[in-house]
Amino acid sequence: MATMTFVEADGTEKQVDAPVGMSILEIAHRNSVDLEGACEGSLACATCHVIVDPAWYEKTGVISEDEEDMLDLAYGVEDTSRLGCQLIMTEELDGLKVRVTDEM
Rank of each mutant, 00 (worst) to 15 (best):
L96A: 01
T80R: 04
S23V: 04
Q86R: 12
T60Q: 07
A18H: 08
Q15I: 10
C39I: 06
I88L: 09
T101D: 12
A44N: 12
K59A: 11
M89E: 08
K14V: 14
D79H: 09
A28E: 00
E103M: 12
M89P: 05
Q86H: 07
L73D: 03
T3H: 13
N31F: 05
E36I: 13
Y75Q: 11
E36V: 14
E40H: 11
L87E: 10
L87H: 07
C85G: 13
S32D: 15
E8R: 15
N31S: 08
G21H: 13
E78Q: 15
D17M: 07
K97Q: 15
A18P: 10
P54N: 09
D72K: 01
W56Y: 05
D69N: 12
E26T: 08
I88T: 08
G37M: 13
D94S: 14
T80N: 09
D69E: 05
L43Q: 02
I24P: 06
V50T: 07
I27H: 00
T47A: 07
A28K: 01
E13Y: 03
L83M: 10
L96F: 05
D72T: 02
H29K: 14
E26P: 04
N31R: 01
K97I: 15
R30L: 10
E40A: 14
A28G: 03
G61P: 08
Y57R: 13
A18K: 08
R30P: 00
P19D: 05
G21L: 12
V62H: 14
A46Y: 01
D10S: 06
E92V: 07
G21V: 11
V16K: 00
D94H: 09
E26F: 01
G95T: 12
D69Y: 02
T60A: 06
E78Y: 05
R82A: 02
V7E: 01
D10I: 04
D17H: 07
V98R: 00
G84P: 05
L96I: 01
M104K: 12
M104D: 15
I27N: 03
Q86E: 09
A46E: 01
R99S: 15
L83P: 10
T90F: 02
C39G: 09
M4G: 00
M4C: 10
C45G: 03
A9E: 06
E92K: 13
A44R: 09
M4L: 06
Q15P: 14
C45E: 01
V98K: 05
T12R: 14
V50G: 07
T47E: 03
A44D: 12
G41P: 01
M104G: 12
E103V: 14
G21E: 12
C45T: 02
S23M: 03
D72V: 02
D66S: 11
C39H: 02
M1R: 07
L25G: 07
M89C: 10
M4N: 01
E65W: 00
D79W: 06
E13Q: 15
L25M: 15
P19G: 10
T80Q: 08
S32A: 15
C85Y: 08
C85N: 12
V50S: 09
R30S: 13
T90M: 00
L73H: 06
L35W: 04
K97R: 15
T47P: 03
D10Q: 02
A74H: 03
